[in-house]
């Protein structure tokens, strides 16, 4: 594990989104190596969303149900790590207020993951969704 990267992923938790990231849509260029840094499990969900297309802050928040702190932390760190592309939001459609909820087998699989993470003493990460 790179201690410098780990330090960055753990400490770039600015309370607010970096000014350069405000009013932008985001797209993940490359995934961070979550095998080498300490991460929150919600970062995986957010990175997956960011990997599909340009996504606005409001879309991220609405779909993931993650806190502002978690989203800002991730976006700030991805930007600092040169893993994120941005472009101005042109038409930020107001998304629904209900966060995406898992159903069917996905809900069951997430439940399995939660349980398995919980049994794993080496896991230092936290599972935000459903916590």
């Amino acid at each position: 594990m790179s201690s410098v990267k780990d330090y960055m992923w753990n400490t770039l938790c600015m309370p607010d989104l970096h000014p350069e990231l405000k009013g932008m849509a985001y797209k993940l260029d490359y995934w961070p190596d979550f095998g080498r840094v300490t991460y929150k499990h919600s970062f995986i969900d957010l990175c997956a969303l960011l990997s599909t297309q340009y996504v606005s802050y409001q879309q991220l928040k609405s779909f993931s149900g993650c806190s502002d702190e978690t989203i800002s932390h991730l976006l700030n760190t991805l930007k600092t790590s040169n893993l994120l592309s941005t472009k101005p939001v042109t038409n930020d459609r107001v998304p629904g207020t209900n966060p995406f909820s898992l159903a069917g087998y996905k809900e069951k699989l997430m439940s399995f993951l939660r349980s398995a993470y919980g049994r794993n003493e080496q896991s230092s990460a936290e599972l935000v969704r459903g916590a």
Partner: peptide
């Protein structure tokens, strides 16, 4: 286990993200 769960969790999240997209 942490590594194996990371891969499995990522695949599930990618399916969810595809639904979102």
């Amino acid at each position: 286990k942490q590594s194996s769960l990371l891969l499995l969790h990522t695949l599930l999240s990618m399916h969810n993200a595809n639904d979102f997209s």
